[in-house]
Simulated scan of single mutants.
Amino acid sequence: MSRPIIATINQKSLKHNLSIVRSLVPKSKIWSVIKANAYGHGINNIWSLSDTDGFALLSIEEAIILREHGWDKPILLLEGFFHLKDLYLIDRYHLTTVIHSQWQIKALENVLLLNPINIYLKVNSGMNRLGFNQKLFHTIRKKLISLNNVHETTLMMHCGDADNQNTIIQSFRLTQRLITGLNCPCSISNSACVLWHPEVNHDWVRVGILLYGASPSGNWLDIANINLKPVMTLSSKIIGIQHLKKGDSIGYGYNYQAKKSQRIGVVACGYADGYPRHAPTGTPVLVDDKITQLVGVVSMDMITVDLTDCPKATIGSNVELWGNTIKIDQVAQVSGTIGYELMCSLASRVPVNIIC
């Protein structure tokens, strides 16, 4: 490896985080959400999370990877299937699929499968993305359970506003009303609900961002007391040193000017690696175990950092962009985005190191 930037994926932290989640939902089963290539961590680096009850993702291709690695427990397709022919793969690989539209029901009626499949019937909770109107739930459920191709049907909703207590109460009441008198499993909770609204946990919870050690609210302080560990660390090294005089500028646009004599470190990391282009001056960076800050504009391949409080830092000094000390939520928050996006934006050119 020539260029020093590297992303480290700590599988021990991942397993630790799952154990924390399980302690929060002792009566529920856990779907570990690994869509978007496991939130940028790499599905091949995550699939060994054997303590989970099931994996939830988007693509059949990723589901097949899991099966070929020997995973024989449940797999949930969160957006369902996109073509009628997908049902043959769902049947062959024993996948569970979301049903959210009428055409999918017609497809189930008109295909000949070897085995009945498990269905997650998605109800629109008010986000108005995917899902049936709640008034249609009983009609559609009756239709589905009458089909030879359907085995078990689970009610599914998604809480899109878990910060709003009224929204959660409405979702809880809606769920209770829909399943009254039915032997119908439910899956409502996401990471935010698991943390703050255990009343909607039900049979299965779907947990994503918590597994990777970041906050569903985007604020690290909201989860600082539950002992989650960051799974991804993005690190690099200083590759250059500049000595500025008062009034000297840094980088594109010369938008940062030194107010005094200043020592600057040039770090091998830029937006082409997945670091946020809009990270402002002041974004925290760790250099040789001392917290300092980004100065100037992020460029494609490099950032510049203030070494005023790092007198021993030199070329080759270690830099943490995010990880155990600099939380990914902190970097995202000051950059006007969320930790989810930074994880998913990790570039393919960044080498990955796995800690087992």
Rank of each mutant, 00 (worst) to 15 (best):
N10A: 07
T304W: 15
A272S: 13
H197Y: 05
I241K: 06
S101H: 15
L244C: 01
I223K: 06
S348F: 03
H197M: 00
K312Y: 15
I34F: 12
S59V: 05
L210A: 01
D248Y: 11
G160E: 08
R177D: 10
P230A: 04
I264M: 03
N118M: 04
L244F: 03
Q102C: 08
G265I: 07
K229P: 06
V200Q: 09
F132A: 03
Q330N: 13
K122E: 13
R3A: 08
G296K: 10
T8V: 14
H151G: 05
D329M: 11
T283L: 04
P26W: 01
G316S: 04
L77C: 06
T337R: 06
T8I: 14
R349T: 06
G208Y: 13
I75F: 12
I264K: 08
S146K: 09
F55N: 02
L66F: 15
L130V: 11
V123T: 02
H100N: 12
E61C: 00
I99S: 04
V194G: 00
A268Q: 15
N149Q: 10
D72K: 14
G160N: 09
Y256Q: 05
S28A: 11
P74L: 05
C310Y: 09
Y271S: 06
D309N: 12
V331C: 00
T283R: 01
L108Q: 03
N166Q: 11
W71F: 04
K135M: 10
N318L: 07
I117V: 15
K122G: 06
A214C: 13
C186G: 07
G339Y: 07
N110G: 10
M302R: 15
T180F: 14
A38G: 13
I9N: 11
N148T: 06
D91T: 05
K122C: 08
A192W: 14
K35Y: 11
T167L: 06
I239N: 02
L182F: 13
A107C: 12
A63C: 15
Y256D: 05
H278G: 07
G270L: 08
